[in-house]
């Protein structure tokens, strides 16, 4: 039983860390502000919730009233992050839009490439 719980919680934490890695790669690799924020906001929220879920399952595994209470507290943190993290991403997006950051467009890059090719 405890082995099963360890496996489940470990798997949840691992999946969460994978999403974190994907979010980090996305922040570095994506071309402009909006897509980067997309990667950061979505990946961050999901992976944090998954990791917290894993920890909650691990804590509730040693079944007692105290541990169950700790698991409930951890899930409360998860709910709080679910509320705030998308909102902060939205606020950042809005600020960027108000600041006049242009979204990335694929065609422009192609034009630049085609313009540069004859000179090279």
């Amino acid at each position: 039983m405890s082995f099963l719980i360890n496996m489940i919680s470990g798997a949840l934490v691992l999946v969460g860390l994978t999403f974190f890695l994907a979010a980090a790669v996305g922040v570095i690799r994506f071309p402009d502000f909006y897509t980067r924020m997309h990667a950061a906001g979505k990946g961050d929220t999901l992976s944090t919730i998954l990791i917290l879920l894993g920890i909650a399952v691990f804590t509730a595994g040693n079944f007692s009233v105290d541990n169950l209470l700790i698991a409930v507290k951890i899930m409360a943190i998860a709910v709080f992050i679910m509320l705030t993290s998308p909102t902060s991403t939205h606020a950042l997006m809005q600020a960027g839009y108000d600041d006049g950051i242009k979204p990335f467009e694929k065609e422009k890059e192609d034009e630049i490439e085609t313009e540069e090719k004859p000179t090279a």
Binding site: F80, L83, T84, T87, H90, A91, Q94
Partner: peptide, 15 residues
Amino acid sequence: RDMITITTCRLVVPI
């Protein structure tokens, strides 16, 4: 003022 942030903060501030 942005409505989404205001609404979320109304939810979050009591917590």
